[in-house]
Design a protein around this nucleic acid. Structure first.
Lengths: 221, 221
DNA sequence: TAGATTGTTAATCGATTAACAATC
DNA sequence: TAGATTGTTAATCGATTAACAATC
């Protein structure tokens, strides 16, 4: 199971929903490949690996495909997360309406100063930090968004891990890692979103492509 | 020039700075490889490709290496960007202190309602949208951060492209693309940060790893 | 000199693509 | 049946790793 494959599955999923609303009932590996920008063989192989079978001449049934992907991607289960740290970024995320569209529900926010709620119209409850463990356990939350200040990030990470959080979206500049001797314990998924680094990369790529243009002019054909 | 290579270069760069502050003067491909988690051969190959030469027995001089990478990554030039759209995320970014650490300077923000400035203590000026073109041209900005509402994203993208912006950090859920027939015109760098998608991926990966655990238990060794 | 590390070439690995028999 | 599309195997491609002569 490749990381690229998961990315592709989400893309198939979105396209399939669009095709369904257009009234289509079947889709060929070729169409799907074109739509998500991969070779048709990749599409067939992906499905084959997931034991999703098409029909030798009729392609794949969209309805069935969506149902299968729902299960594989876990879209049939509730997708709930908490936000830890309700500073600027944290509260921006709490009020972001785009999550609901994708079926994601932010169950609560946590902050050392839960009074941050007072300032703003919070659509989502904000609790003090010492309710973190209780809430997560009671509500059986599996995913946490970390938007605390840099110095607090690893401590929060460890607290969340200890209480059963398995998926992390980390906005602090500290790159969170698990060094898990392959196959040991429950898998932990971490996505680090480092905005400063992202921006830095853009400057780098820009500079490098420009430089290589220059060298191409000097030495090139 | 691979995308992965740029990523590695930034990692070398950070490590080298740390080594320098520790007082080291030389570094071996092996050490550097260990530090960033790649094979030593990769390090040597990367440098070789960039015409950075070491010494057959003495490794690489840290000071020179940093100078070379400075140039390659464009760290010797000013790294300035504008933010278009000063809503919740936009203004959170404007007040984010992490950029300065990396030598990135946000030159200005733009919004259809520049009065957003009044509410908050803005460390950075916010101008109305119709000053966008003038400012970017006068200040020769090359990088733009797009934090406008979804519906406005492509319009803003096109305006920015037209006025010479070449690097984009896009926070709207619309995936911006350029279909540039290889080698035509100036290169455009786009990074899309889609937070909802990122979170979705975490749920997917979690679900898939859990499922594969289950199947492993059923069929496994 | 002997030992160590580079720069580069060859071998390996994995993923992508092409091809084709199976079959609806 | 003939045509089309799958599922899967083989070929290709690219990137990573290993190996080794060059040399400080």
């Amino acid at each position: 199971m490749h990381k690229d494959m998961i990315l592709r599955l989400t893309k198939y999923y979105r396209i399939l929903h669009k095709l369904k609303t257009l009234g289509l009932e079947r889709v060929f590996a070729n169409n799907l490949g074109d739509a998500v920008g991969v070779n048709a063989a990749v599409v067939r192989k992906d499905f084959s690996l997931l034991n999703i079978m098409g029909q030798k001449r009729g392609g794949y049934e969209i309805e069935n495909l969506i149902t299968d992907l729902d299960k594989i991607l876990g879209k049939d289960k509730p997708q709930r997360a908490v936000i830890v740290g309700c500073g600027r970024i944290g509260s921006a995320l709490m009020r972001y309406s785009g999550f609901a569209v994708d079926g994601i529900h932010i169950a609560a926010g946590f902050d050392i100063n839960p009074a941050v709620c007072e300032d703003q119209h919070c659509p989502i409850p904000i609790y003090p930090m010492d309710e973190l463990e209780r809430f997560i356990q009671e509500e059986q939350i599996r995913v946490g968004i970390i938007t605390v200040p840099e110095q607090a990030s690893t401590e929060i990470f460890n607290r969340l891990r200890a209480v059963g959080i398995r998926g992390f979206l980390n906005f602090t500049p500290i790159e969170l890692k698990v060094s898990r001797p392959a196959g040991t314990g429950a898998p932990i998924i971490i996505h680090n979103v480092n905005i400063a680094l992202e921006l830095e990369h853009i400057f780098y790529e820009l500079n490098i492509t420009e430089n290589s243009e220059i060298t191409a002019q000097l030495y090139g054909s």
